[in-house]
Computed example of a mutant assay.
Amino acid sequence: MALPATIYRVGVQLSDVDRNQYQKLQTTVARHPSETAERLVARVLAYACQYDPDLAFTKGICAGDEPDLWIKGPDGRVTTWIEVGQPDPERLLKASRHAAKVILFAYGPARYRWENQHLPRLLAIPNLTIIGIDYDFLQQIVARLQRAINWDLTITEGNLYLSIGEETLESSLTLLAGTIDQE
């Protein structure tokens, strides 16, 4: 018998000064049994950092042909494709042909090796943005992870200030390729 997904209730008080977004985000996220806690946290951070009313979580790990998050237009076509982790460059190339905008939140203990190996080729994709997330920052969040996620997240000048309870964790987002929208 397959293990069921673990459900997380997420509440994020978002103050994204860079994009002039001030929202109380409420969502539910399912964590597949094979998904790491770091990947779950990366997906939630990507959701908050790229928040748009039409942004939605997909089946993710369960559906290999879908991104982690997406925005679909009225015609059902994917306009924004968001991945987390260190996907195969061919996957990003394919996504860039089908979506107007592709964003990767890259993280992991081997991220720098992945960057050295694949970044030169990926820089040629005009609609691809790659943002690096510090792996130690993700691990600090994972150490405080609960099924009911309640965060206060402030984003200013590419820096993240994440308050969980009485603690505030800090990190920066590293732009590795493309541009970050300042909507």
Rank of each mutant, 00 (worst) to 15 (best):
C49Y: 00
R111F: 00
G165C: 06
Q21I: 06
D134V: 09
I149L: 03
K24Q: 01
L104F: 11
R113Q: 12
D88E: 13
R147Y: 10
T27Q: 08
A99Y: 02
Y8K: 10
C62S: 12
R121V: 06
Y51E: 08
G64Q: 15
L55K: 09
D152N: 15
Y51V: 11
Y51I: 11
S96E: 07
I103M: 01
A110I: 04
T28W: 02
D18H: 05
A110E: 11
D54C: 01
L176H: 15
A63V: 12
L175R: 12
Y161G: 00
Q23K: 11
V12C: 01
S172I: 10
S34Y: 02
Y51P: 14
K101Q: 07
V102N: 12
I180K: 09
V10Y: 00
V84S: 04
L25D: 00
I141V: 15
L138V: 09
Y112P: 03
G64T: 13
E38W: 00
W114E: 09
E115S: 08
I133N: 01
F137N: 15
D75H: 12
V41D: 10
T28Y: 02
R9D: 08
Y161E: 06
D68W: 03
D16I: 00
D54M: 04
E35T: 10
D65S: 13
L40V: 05
N127S: 14
L45R: 05
A56T: 04
W81E: 11
T156D: 12
A148C: 03
T79I: 07
L69P: 10
E167F: 02
G178A: 08
A37M: 15
Y112N: 07
L104T: 10
L3C: 03
E90L: 10
N159V: 02
D88L: 13
G178K: 09
A56R: 12
T80A: 06
T28M: 03
T174Q: 09
K72C: 06
R147I: 04
I103F: 00
K24D: 08
L123V: 14
D16H: 09
Q21T: 05
L45C: 06
A148R: 07
F105P: 10
L14Y: 01
S34Q: 10
T36A: 12
Q21L: 05
E166G: 13
L160D: 01
G64F: 08
R121I: 00
E35G: 12
T154I: 07
I130G: 10
E38S: 15
G60I: 12
L128E: 13
L138E: 07
E66Y: 06
Y135N: 15
W151K: 12
N127Y: 13
V84N: 02
T6D: 01
K59D: 14
P67A: 04
W81Q: 10
R31V: 00
I130F: 15
Y22G: 06
V41G: 13
A100L: 05
K94F: 02
V78M: 02
G11F: 11
A95S: 04
E157G: 07
Q117N: 05
G64K: 12
R39S: 08
L128I: 14
